[in-house]
């Protein structure tokens, strides 16, 4: 109790210390190490097949869509919420965007559509996702229905709505220009899908770490009542957060359109669980108030590297979900141990 009042040493390098601390909480460091070790092990076992530019590029591209969903999911889980609907909202938004682009093209075939149509398609896709997220947010924050139930409802309803719009079959004409530029395009060896996902992740990390919106996000997840008492608009913040996740799901839907060239209606039923798993592996607490975007990025790549690695070294791919599940349960267990250690103080 008699130690000097304040830690004057840290006054000197305030910025460094807090930035370092903020970016690399011990937790993130460990999951990052796990990722590096996994990558190194597969690289040593099959340097010819795993340690290639092509493998690295496909690894990144295949993770890009999930990464965009995961950035939004990080925000929601930090508020101690959950969003089970991201995969279905992705499909719904993709269908809306694809149909808008078809509708603007002669003969309903969007394959030859130009930049203008693609831009409108992008806006429509993101707006459709955001609208669905807004609905989630209003039901959760205003009507006070638990997020698990609201988004479980949206999970079914958004997919159903997408199938109603298309009559159950996929929209198959996607502008070739969009596919060439975003789906397969590269700049200096870096796929455009990856650049877009990285921009989203960096923006998310900036928003969460350095803005009032991000700080409020942590405060609400940590103690919503305290946040309310100091005058933070908790309801408005939650609505905005779910709308943000929806908008990102829309963007992910647009990326999926560009990459697969179809709306892949039946291909996203486990996106929600993959995104939640990635966020939790990355050290975000399901109890709220703790988490980083960087951690979630690492959390996306651990399952992705396992999948690629198992294929390359010839392990049956069925081992992949088992391995990911073990990592997931271990991550939550570590979080629990940490919380217990803290609360027993």
């Amino acid at each position: 109790m008699s130690q000097s009042t304040l830690d004057y040493e840290s006054t000197v390098n305030t910025e460094q210390q807090s930035l370092g601390k903020r970016l690399f909480s011990a937790n993130t460091l460990w999951t990052g190490l796990v990722l590096l070790v996994l990558y190194a092990v597969f690289s040593i076992m099959r340097p010819d097949a795993f340690l290639t530019l092509f493998t690295f590029q496909t690894l990144l591209i295949e993770a890009a869509v999930l990464l965009v969903l995961t950035v939004g999911m990080t925000f929601v889980i930090i508020t101690s919420g959950i969003d089970l609907s991201v995969g279905s909202v992705l499909v719904f938004a993709g269908v809306v965007g694809a149909q808008v682009m078809e509708g603007m093209s002669p003969g309903g075939d969007a394959t030859g559509a130009g930049a203008g149509v693609i831009a409108v398609g992008l806006l429509a896709t993101v707006a459709a996702g955001a609208a669905w997220g807004l609905l989630n947010g209003l039901l959760i924050a205003k009507a006070k229905i638990p997020p698990l139930i609201v988004t479980l409802g949206s999970f079914g309803a958004a997919l159903g709505a997408a199938q109603l719009l298309t009559g159950g079959s996929d929209v198959r004409t996607v502008p070739a220009q969009l596919r060439d530029w975003l789906g397969f395009g590269q700049t200096a060896g870096v796929p455009h899908m990856v650049i877009l996902a990285a921009v989203v992740a960096l923006h998310g990390a900036w928003l969460l770490r350095t803005t009032r919106f991000g700080r409020n996000n942590y405060a609400i997840g940590s103690n919503a009542e305290a946040a309310r008492r100091v005058g933070i608009n908790v309801t408005g913040h939650l609505v905005a957060t779910y709308a943000y996740v929806g908008a990102l799901a829309g963007l992910a839907g647009f990326m999926s359109l560009a990459y697969f060239g179809t709306t892949t209606i039946s291909g996203h039923s486990t996106d929600n669980l993959n995104a939640i798993a990635a966020v939790v592996i990355g050290g975000t607490s399901l109890f709220g108030g703790v988490g980083t975007v960087l951690g979630s990025v690492i959390g996306v790549f651990i399952p992705a590297v396992l999948t690629k690695g198992f294929v390359v070294i010839g392990v049956q791919p069925y081992w992949q979900p088992i391995a990911v599940s073990i990592v997931l349960v271990a991550a939550v267990w570590l979080d629990q141990v940490r919380r217990r250690a803290r609360n027993s103080r």
Binding site: T14, E15, R215, A219, A226, R229, G289
Partner: peptide, 28 residues
């Protein structure tokens, strides 16, 4: 007390009335 356990002392003291520098928080 209405404190946010997961946030540090500074964050708690300025909760809801954070100082800004432009768009971002003036942490220092």
């Amino acid at each position: 007390l209405a404190l946010c356990d997961n946030l540090d002392i500074v964050d708690n003291m300025f909760l809801g009335r954070e100082r800004l520098r432009g768009l971002t928080l003036d942490d220092a």
